[in-house]
Each structure stands twice: as C-alpha cells, then as structure tokens.
Design a protein around this nucleic acid. Structure first.
Length: 470
DNA sequence: CTATGGCACGGATT
DNA sequence: AATCCGTGCCATAG
C-alpha cells in the first residue's frame, strides 16, 4: 500500500484497466494492427518461439499445434488458440449468415508453393523460411500488411533481407504480390511491362501521384492539374485496366470489391471458430484466434540489460519495459475473458450452435457477467465487434447469442412457411400462445417486419400469383 | 370492420 | 445515461 507513493504505480493500474477495456472491444483484425504497432514502437516486446511446421511449412509459434497436420481428434482441450492467418486461409471472407456456397475453394496454399517454385533459383536456402513466412502473411488480395520492420523483428532477419525477399516475391508470376496495396502492386507491374506504349509514362504518373483521384474517378480534376486532355487520361486508364491488375491474388478485375467503407461488418473472417469433433458430433471444439501468431512477451534480454546500464537511458528503457509489461498483461486478460465467455456460451448454447436459431436460450450480458464474475460492461465489450464461425460454416456476429427474440422469430418464420393460407398477425400470435409463448399481436408484426415477411394480405397475393404462374 | 403500421411510453438492457 | 425492446393506442387502407 505504501508503495503507492511510487509515481509509476498508480497510473499503471488505471492505465491497465483502461487499456484492457479498450483492447477488449477490438476485433481480431483491429487488435492485430494494435499489436503490430506496439511491436514496432517498443523494443522491449518480442514474439517468442517461431517455427515452421515440418509437414506443411506453415509458420507456427509457441505451443500451438499445427492446425493442418494435427488431426482434429488430438484437440483434447476445449479451447485452442491459433494463428489468424490460418483462419483466413480456411475461412475465406464471406458475408454474415451466408452458408458456404461450395466446397472450400482451391487451396490458396497452392499460391505459396507456386511462388516458391518460381523462386527456387534465386532464393538462397536460408531465406526459404522467411519467404514462407511472408507468403503466409499475405491477405486475401495478396498484399502484405505487416511492415518490413515487423517481419524482420518477428523472423530475426535484417530489414534488408526482408525487403530483398519481398521484392523477389513481388516480381514473380502474380506480379505485385506482397506489396502493401493496390498502388504499389500496379507500379511493380508497370515496371515489368515490356512494350513501350505511349500511355505508359502517363499511367505511371497517374498511379504515383493521383491514385486516390483515380479511384474516385475524378478525371476532370486530374486533367486540370496535369494539363493533359481528358482524352489522354482516359486512354491511359484503359491501358491500366487492360494491362495491370490492382489485386494480384485475384484472378481478374472486379471479382469481389473491397468491403464498403461504411460497413466493416459485411465481410469478415471469424474471430472465433466452432467446430465439432470428427468422432463425436456433439462435442464442440472452440478455437479463439489470437491476434498474432505465437506468444507476445517481454524480451528477457531487455530486462537484464536494464539492470546493468546506468546512464540516462535507463529511464526511457524502464518506461518501455513498463509499457511492454502492461501490454502483455492486457493481452492475456483479453484472452482470458474471451476464453471464459466462450466456455460459458458453448456450454449453455450447445443446442443453438448445433441445431439452429430455434434453440437459442435467452440470456443477457448481465447474466453472463455475473456468472463469470466480471462487470457487465466487460461482457459488452467482449461481445462487440466479434464474429464466430459455426460448425455449419455460417459466420454470425457474437452478439447474436444475446438476441432475445431470435428463437421466436425463427418459429414465426416456420409457421409462415408451413401455413396453408396466410395467417394474420393475430392468428400467428395465438398459435404461438398455444405453443406456450405469450406474445402480443403487435410484437408479431414487428418480428415479421424484421424477418422481411410480408403482411398476410400481400402474402395471399403472392401465393396466388405463384399458383397462377405454376 | 379488420389487419397493419406509426408513434410513443415505460421498463429492461447495455 | 443512453439505447433497445415489447406493447398499447390510434389512424388508415382495404
């Protein structure tokens, strides 16, 4: 208690709370950015124990089992953490609720091996793991979001080496792979083009200096500031469109746009994955993806070094050390909360996960909070911005687990589907009443609206029309 | 006259 | 403290 006099202690605890809270709301993607930023700015942090799986060449870290080579039956613990990159590979972006349309698409791992095969000649043997690491870090579009210094730190290579390998990668077949965005991808591709068509230099100029205007089709303003005719601008754009591909990992233009800026939730890779055991379909396995692969920890060397040095840097270093400790603690706390939350959800909503919306047992965040022993707002944050992939392949927001009316809405849907002739809201309400659900007529109407079901009168018309049509 | 949707209120939830 | 949700009342369309 007396220690509180120490300047660093009191702000530390409040900061700790605040930071834990602010990290809890983040989705995995967002958290990953946070961690990367922290790693880049704080030398006291490091990632521990990186390995490449001898079987499938995936990058593994810490105690995590290889998700591919290890049979699912070996998951004997209910909860497992694994790398987010693997989650993206196995669960391509997909909108909420949308069940998997077909078989899992052609494995993107082929891209890795495909690229590696091309690189075989130029790549030194000891650079192979680095190349694999980089390739496995690419996002769906083939871009590398991790900055080179971060990769260097994670792989313990020099930044120079990292940059060299990235440049090798971006110059083989899907040209532009491993760049940090469409703009650089286009530029790399432009460099590789051999034919010196007249539009080429203008195209380069456009991409380099007017990229945002280009994306927003502000051709007039480009034309004005460059003093070039709109005619020429357009022909340069055609040249770009015909010869370059801003998304090197996609086969062609226009297939799948970026998510709209307004709604980050439309397309998602899950933060949590629920699957069933191979041999026991009733046994659920939950995997919570950690924001980064492996263990984030305070660099023990850094800690040691602090004790020895006694120049004026000591103060700055100890600040770093405090910050690193804090950050790691927050991350652990977040993981802990998420784990407890999911344990409870899986045990209480077992039927909902396996059988569908009808079996959702109503529960509130407040109730869960009491069960776990944390504040309600903690649960609110934990539930926010997270999505979970169910065994049947659907990806739903975690908040759905707390939807009070979901199961009733599902029953209404079924009643309407099976009705002989259109039932009015009142009749639906009484049917539900017979099944033991007390619900007002007005509320049925609201649920109907939510589910996009037309009122009885109009349903009659469409049904008649359907019959007439058939 | 009946079925519905809008508005608004109070209680629960976050 | 702010927001969401279920409900009742009432106007309106059919």
């Amino acid at each position: 208690m007396l220690q509180i006099q120490d300047q660093s202690l009191r702000p530390l605890t409040t900061a700790h709370l605040a930071q834990t809270m602010s990290m809890l709301v983040l989705s995995n993607q967002e958290l990953r950015d946070r961690v990367i930023a922290e790693l880049a700015s704080n030398p006291a942090l490091e990632i521990q124990d990186e390995r490449v799986c001898p079987g499938c060449k995936r990058v593994l870290r810490g105690t995590i089992r290889c998700p591919v080579c290890t049979q699912k039956s070996k998951y004997d613990e209910p909860l497992v953490f694994l790398s987010p990159r693997d989650s993206m590979r196995r669960y391509p972006r997909r909108s909420f609720e949308e069940a998997p349309t077909d078989q899992e698409p052609a494995a993107p791992e082929d891209l890795t091996t495909y690229v590696l095969r091309q690189l075989a000649a130029e790549l030194q043997h000891e650079d192979r793991p680095l190349a694999i690491y980089i390739l496995s870090s690419l996002d769906d579009d083939g871009f590398l979001s991790d900055p080179a210094p971060f990769i260097a730190q994670a792989t313990r290579k020099s930044i120079f080496e990292v940059q060299r390998v990235i440049s090798l990668i971006s110059n083989v077949d899907p040209v532009g792979l491993g760049t940090n965005g469409p703009k650089d991808a286009l530029l790399v591709q432009l460099d590789q083009l051999e034919n010196d068509s007249p539009q080429r230099e203008l195209a380069r100029l456009l991409i380099e200096d007017f990229f945002t205007q280009l994306a927003q089709k502000e051709y007039e303003s480009i034309s004005a500031s460059l003093d070039v005719s709109q005619e020429d601008i357009r022909s340069a754009i055609v040249y770009i469109q015909e010869n370059l591909n801003p998304y090197p990992a996609r086969s062609n233009w226009g297939s799948g746009r970026n998510p709209q800026p307004g709604d980050p939730n439309v397309y998602h890779s899950p933060d949590i994955l629920i699957t069933t055991k191979e041999d026991d379909k009733n046994h659920l396995v939950v995997e919570i993806f950690s924001a980064i692969a492996g263990n984030l920890r305070v660099n023990p060397m850094f800690r040691k070094a602090l004790g020895k040095s006694d120049d004026e840097k000591t103060e700055e270093w100890s600040r770093h050390l405090d910050r690193a400790n804090l950050f790691v603690k927050c991350l652990q706390q977040r993981n802990n909360t998420m784990r407890k939350l999911m344990e409870l959800l899986v045990s209480q909503q077992h039927d909902f996960i396996l059988e569908g919306a009808r079996h959702l047992e109503p529960m509130t965040r407040a109730h869960v909070a009491e069960e776990i022993g944390v504040h309600e707002s903690t649960i609110s944050r934990a539930v926010a911005h997270k999505s979970v992939a169910l065994p049947d392949g659907r990806i739903i927001p975690l908040a759905k687990f707390f939807d009070r009316s979901l199961s009733i809405r599902d029953r209404i849907k079924e009643i309407v589907r099976n009705e002989a002739k259109p039932l009015t809201d009142d009749q639906i309400a009484s049917v539900l009443g017979d099944e033991g659900v007390k619900i007002a007529r007005r509320t049925v109407a609201k649920y109907r609206a939510i589910e996009g079901i037309l009122p009885a009168r109009l349903r009659g018309q469409t049904k008649a029309a359907q019959l007439a049509g058939v």
